[in-house]
């Protein structure tokens, strides 16, 4: 009788588990937050790597993102999925970092990179392992402006309107950057 009851319950009640670690973490439970971290770190790290194009820096930004998430978690209202909330937060951490650090890099990379990023592909050698570059490596070599739009749109699935808001550009600018990124990637992948 007991077993029957249990099986009924097991088949009808969906798992509450992911919600619960987030809720516990929001209430200050660090162990629960570590589980949230473990469950999400690869996703967040991937966003950071692809957005900033530097693995070492991406590791630091990933840490910053989770510290921010911990601080802001009590404010998370569950209006969006937790993962959506967290990924957006990670994107913001990378973009804010760009404002501080990126200026030097942008300057080093020839003005605002946006005009003739093509030169990057022309000049730089393909990545060490490759006769034929894989997409991951090709993304890394994109000029920063095109890379950010490409990652946000084609990898992360944001819409142009959202990207425009995040990056402080127009929706049309976002579309143009995306197209340019795809053309550059195609060129890189075909060589």
């Amino acid at each position: 009788m007991l077993t029957a009851t249990m099986e009924d319950v097991v088949t009808t009640i969906p798992s509450e588990e992911p919600t619960s670690d987030v809720a516990l973490a929001a209430a200050g439970d660090r162990q629960a937050f570590e589980r949230v971290y473990r469950a999400n770190v690869q996703r967040v790290f991937s966003i950071c790597v692809r957005m900033c194009g530097d693995r070492g820096r991406a590791e630091e930004l990933t840490q910053d993102a989770f510290v921010r998430a911990w601080e802001k978690l009590p404010l998370f209202r569950g209006e969006s999925a937790f993962s959506t909330w967290l990924h957006r937060l990670a994107v913001n951490v990378v973009l804010n970092d760009r404002k501080v650090l990126g200026r030097e890099r942008a300057r080093a990379a020839n003005g605002d990179d946006d005009e003739d990023g093509e030169a990057l592909y022309g000049a730089s050698a393909p990545p060490s392992h490759a006769d034929r570059m894989d997409l991951e490596a090709a993304i890394e070599l994109l000029p920063p402006g095109a890379r950010r739009v490409f990652v946000l749109h084609d990898v992360e699935g944001y819409r142009h309107e959202e990207i425009a808001e995040m990056l402080g550009v127009t929706s049309g600018g976002s579309k143009a950057q995306l197209h340019r990124a795809r053309l550059l990637l195609r060129e890189a992948l075909n060589r």
């Binding site: 590791e59 997409l135 195609r186």
Partner: peptide
């Protein structure tokens, strides 16, 4: 390209963060 980009695998940090 977008199809391939959407199917990229997650990356792993080199160390425990």
């Amino acid at each position: 390209i977008p199809t391939e980009a959407g199917a990229l695998h997650d990356l792993e940090p080199s160390r425990d963060l």
